[in-house]
């Protein structure tokens, strides 16, 4: 850790077009040291292109990127040992075992071979050390791929959709790995199209759509800023729509075939009123999420 706290990542107004398509259209953000920063958005939002420009894999048409005080483009060998990158495709050498992959990638950075076992332990693959990469499951490959990005102990880690195409259990396992990495004091910049996941993991998120950042803040702040009502869902028939509307604090009540949905901005008094009436059977409370934020920002439903 350096004494002068410079931001780990400073991105200023980067742009990239492919013909007519503006893949990245004036994106700016700053990531502090030790922060877990998420770039979210649906497929084709420009997340990967943004990340590739930031990593120094692509030259932006315009704008500036500074990583740990250095320019990533053109290829900057001074910066490379300090950043770790996991690419979207899991890039491995053919026919090598998990341990050998880590040893080989590590050697590109002059890291000792012993480091491989430490990494395997970090991502929970110790018992798969001697298994060839192509025989690992999707989740194991992702974890190995993250371990390969971390093998040289970088300060700044970029992960591109590490949880894509994983089953729920594997996703949750990976969350633990990501939290463990942050606990080591690393700065993490990662992309995902799972909004729920970003809400749980990230200190701050940037919501992207069509090459632009629509909103950027802590997930809780974004949701709160929405001033969206809380939805209380009851089984149909316990309460009439009119009775529900009569309760103090209820903004609206809607009925469909199976349930009655009450919208409120003061959930506490509404819930106690419902409890008094003994109508809590099958009750669900749904507060606003990042998906509602996305809907509010774009006017359309979020489709990953």
């Amino acid at each position: 850790m350096t004494g002068a706290r410079i931001p780990a990542v400073v991105v200023a107004d980067i742009r990239k077009s492919y013909g007519e398509l503006k893949a990245v259209d004036g994106v700016s953000f700053t990531v502090a040291e030790g922060e877990f920063f998420g770039i979210l958005g649906p497929n084709g939002a420009g997340k990967t292109t943004t990340l590739e420009i930031v990593e120094g894999l692509r030259k932006p048409d315009g704008g500036q990127v500074t990583l740990l005080g250095e320019q990533p483009w053109p290829r900057n060998p001074k910066l490379l040992p300090r950043i770790g990158v996991q690419l979207q495709a899991s890039s491995f050498f053919e026919k090598l075992t998990a341990r050998e992959q880590l040893q080989t990638f590590g050697s590109l950075y002059g890291v000792s071979r012993r480091k491989a076992d430490e990494m395997l332990e970090l991502v929970g693959l110790t018992d798969k050390a001697d298994v060839q990469e192509n025989k690992l499951s999707g989740g194991q490959r992702q974890r190995l791929s993250i371990a390969c990005a971390l093998v040289h102990d970088p300060d700044l880690v970029f992960l591109d959709e590490p949880t894509a195409a994983l089953d729920p259990q594997a996703r949750r396992n990976l969350w633990d790995v990501l939290r463990a990495i942050q606990a080591r004091g690393k700065t993490i910049v990662y992309t995902t199209h799972y909004l729920d996941e970003a809400e749980i993991l990230c200190d701050r998120v940037a919501i992207m759509d069509r090459g632009r950042i629509l909103a950027m803040d802590a997930p809780a702040t974004l949701v709160r800023g929405l001033d969206a009502p809380t939805h209380v869902v009851l089984q149909k028939g316990l309460l009439t729509r009119e009775a529900a509307r009569g309760i103090t604090g209820v903004d609206d009540a809607q009925e469909d075939e199976v349930s009655l949905t009450i919208s409120t901005r003061k959930p506490a008094p509404v819930l106690s009123a419902l409890a008094e009436r003994g109508t809590l059977d099958g009750l669900q409370v749904r507060t606003a999420t990042l998906e509602d934020v996305f809907l509010d920002l774009t006017g359309r439903e979020y489709r990953a």
């Binding site: 990593e55 120094g56 894999l57 290829r75 060998p77 490379l80 040992p81 950043i83 990158v85 690419l87 979207q88 495709a89 899991s90 890039s91 491995f92 050498f93 990638f105 590109l108 950075y109 390969c148």
Partner: peptide, 12 residues
């Protein structure tokens, strides 16, 4: 498999 990109991102 993007091994080339990965190598390019390493100081080698």
């Amino acid at each position: 498999k993007q091994v080339l990109r990965r190598i390019r991102l390493a100081p080698v």
